[in-house]
Simulated assay, not measured.
Amino acid sequence: MHKFLSRTALATLALTIGTEAMATEWNVSLWGKRRAFTEHVEKLAELVEERSGGDFTLNISYGGLSTNRENLDGISIGAFEMAQFCAGYHPDKNPSITVLELPFLGVQSLEQEVKISQALYEHPAAVEDLARWNATLLMPSPLPQYNLVGMGDAPQTLDDFEGLSVRATGGIGAAMETIGAVPTSMSATEVRQAMDSGVVSAVSFAPHAHMAFGTIEIGEWWTTNLNPGTVNCPVVVNSDALADLSDENREALMGSVDDALDHYVTFYNEKTMAAWGPALDERGIERVTFGDEEINAFREAAADPAAAAWIEENTERGLPAQELYDFVTGMIAEGN
């Protein structure tokens, strides 16, 4: 009887260990803290675990696996299976998707940003571009138009940006340069220290990031309608890890993307933007609104030169740059 029970116990233990070994866990590299910008990843983790019956889990880390500028490198070597990054942090590593960071593209909503980003992510040139890093584009992190929170005297005209040191990446930085500002590219986690030390006097962010990274705690003014553009920050997965998933777990992951994005858009529109105005009011931050004439002049000065430069530079890289630009602008023109 003793031997029988021992063998039964051992068999049960072996079965348990075998079951646990079959479960799939992915590590996910994010940064900062949980905020509107990461809500789709949090929702995705929840849905994947639920739909896989607990067989597939996403372990989300905020800065514990990599720095935000090295997330794509980590994906390439399989240091973790999923990560978020912003194209403008390293445009040379992902030039195909930086077309979405060109200034004044005219995207009108988060919903439109999702649709255009997802379409571009499936373009053969973008797929091939990210494949160099063993990465598969999974989903975007749609953001509204960026605007500035700054310190010191509030600009009253575009001329007042002359010589102003501004944290601005990608196409936004190029746009700010056309009105005399001095753009500096740095990651979101470096921004508050740069403001505190006087390295920059203004910061270009979407509203959630101004709140999450503390710029409004020391900011004195906010531009309501400069709207030079936004950044594109995809979530990617290691291609080998994706291929190794069981059919059921791959379906749990891929089949949850649209629901996760729907959750993200609702959260951003209904919670983040609702909190933004009161946050400015509580801190006495001055709102700066520019006239149509100045905004139109800014657009004319920045949009076409930035697009032409992007097309020329990336054609030389071997990308079908004109095709990518026409693809994106064509969707926007059609209202897609």
Rank of each mutant, 00 (worst) to 15 (best):
T215W: 03
L143P: 06
P234I: 05
I60M: 01
A14Q: 01
I216N: 09
F85E: 13
A79K: 14
D281N: 14
L143K: 02
L5K: 00
I218C: 02
T189P: 03
G150Q: 04
E323Q: 10
S204C: 07
N94T: 15
A174D: 15
R35I: 04
I77M: 03
A79C: 08
L148S: 08
V199W: 07
A321W: 09
A45G: 10
M254S: 11
M1Y: 13
T136W: 10
K271M: 04
R69M: 12
E81R: 03
L261G: 08
P140K: 03
D281L: 03
G32N: 03
E300Y: 06
T67F: 11
V107R: 04
E177A: 10
H263K: 01
R283E: 12
L226Q: 06
N336V: 15
A154G: 11
E25W: 01
L148N: 12
R35L: 00
D259M: 14
N336F: 09
L13T: 03
S61C: 00
I97E: 05
H40I: 07
F327R: 01
T12N: 00
E270N: 06
R287E: 15
F80K: 11
S165I: 11
R7S: 02
S141G: 11
T57N: 04
S187F: 11
T184D: 00
